[in-house]
Design a protein around this nucleic acid. Sequence first.
DNA 1: CAGGCATATGCCTATTTGGTTATATTAAGT
DNA 2: ACTTAATATAACCAAATAGGCATATGCCTG
Lengths: 102, 102
Amino acid sequence: MATSFTLLADPTRRRLLDELRRGERSVGELVDRLQMNQPAVSKQLRVLREAGLASVRVDAQRRIYRLNPDGLREVDEWLAPYRAFWEGRLDAMERTLDSMED
Amino acid sequence: MATSFTLLADPTRRRLLDELRRGERSVGELVDRLQMNQPAVSKQLRVLREAGLASVRVDAQRRIYRLNPDGLREVDEWLAPYRAFWEGRLDAMERTLDSMED
DNA sequence: CAGGCATATGCCTATTTGGTTATATTAAGT
DNA sequence: ACTTAATATAACCAAATAGGCATATGCCTG
């Protein structure tokens, strides 16, 4: 059971997502762009698929992959409170939490 | 060489960061909150330290850890173009990239 | 239906990783 | 100095993981 966090840990998967972000891609196209052999690409595509980050459409012998970015929201939401830090402000929530400590 | 992406892959490290986000914490406090044994916590703290996501201050026998959130910007920045998706808009950049395909 | 594409899958292996136990280190208190 | 507290480190192990090669599967074309 891969979480969206563990998905992003692998650079190959990030590159795949970055490709799919630009539009639909067949496996062959992805193999070309990533310069990896096909089984390796298919393997990571499967991981993305099973995690719900990508979906496939069949086109004759081709499989066309498409980004399904919703799963990334989990990461984005986790990151949200940290964003406040480098945006240089401590909002009410941060101050509240901070005052809760010892 | 751990990237900020691989750092977030581990739930223990995410919990540590979530604790440190609230304020400085000694190792003992972190051990209590995470309900893990001390070496496991120290091990992950070291990873965070070496990745620059946390810094330590010595206080007698205690080591006080502090969040250093800058490293997370890498993840946040990588995520930025995806955010556009679930925010339901395709801005100029997205359209540009999309038109570049095939 | 034979042969060639495009892709998935199975198996193998090397590496990495997170946790555990035991031990070292350093400081404080008596 | 001796003891205890707090933390780090080392050695070890089990599980997960990514990639490589070989092979299976399915579709299309002649």
